[in-house]
Design a binder for these strands. Sequence first.
DNA 1: TTGATATTTCTAGAATCATGGAAATCAAAA
DNA 2: TTTTGATTTCCATGATTCTAGAAATATCAA
Lengths: 118, 118
Amino acid sequence: MEIKNAVTALAALAQESRLDIFRLLVRAGTEGIAAGQIAQSLALAPATLSFHLNQLRGAGLIAMRRDGRSLIYSADYTAMNALLAYLTEECCQGAPDACGLALCDGASLVTPRKGSRA
Amino acid sequence: MEIKNAVTALAALAQESRLDIFRLLVRAGTEGIAAGQIAQSLALAPATLSFHLNQLRGAGLIAMRRDGRSLIYSADYTAMNALLAYLTEECCQGAPDACGLALCDGASLVTPRKGSRA
DNA sequence: TTGATATTTCTAGAATCATGGAAATCAAAA
DNA sequence: TTTTGATTTCCATGATTCTAGAAATATCAA
């Protein structure tokens, strides 16, 4: 991941409505949620929601698919993982106990996604 | 963690210079780095660096201590972990294979450790 | 077709943010 | 106590972002 992508992703998440939206989608899983339902869940004006969904999409954090009249949005877990990995890269070098992050013990934060896990 | 804290932290990281600074400190470990050295490493004007360090500090992502004439900055791993945990909370419910994140297997992203104030 | 529903694009003003020069502060050394 | 060094605060300017009304677009149902 390049820094510009990371900044774009972080900026996308650095807004209350968008963070709410993203976390809603993260919880929802790969099935996703229709825009209308998101708007209802979070009490957002349609235009406002659309703007925020676009930001998240532009940042590569969520995906969209159409289902009839509805547009279904879902979290992109691969992108999320890449972002987390970028943030924690080479963390607390020389003092693995310091950070308390699983990653720091030499384990991988992101398990290779071939259906297997470390 | 409350959403406002998360947004503040994400906003702090959503800027190229600040993300560079933070990752530098994450790599550096608990020992930290003096402001002057950061400025030199990243080729930032003193006033600009100071502004960004303040943002990161206000977001609770980094700590500061004085050593002689120098101010030493270091990453706050506890805060970082809290942010990561917030982002991945209850992720991909019902389809643990989908997200590829260690957390999703029921494991904890953050290993509890003594002295942790999260 | 026509009508209803779901969602997006366009737009513009208000609010927030980044940059860096100059001056100020704080700690150490002479 | 004067000077040097490290860093911060102040400030103005330019750039970016958020919000939501109104109009446009896309899909389905009758």
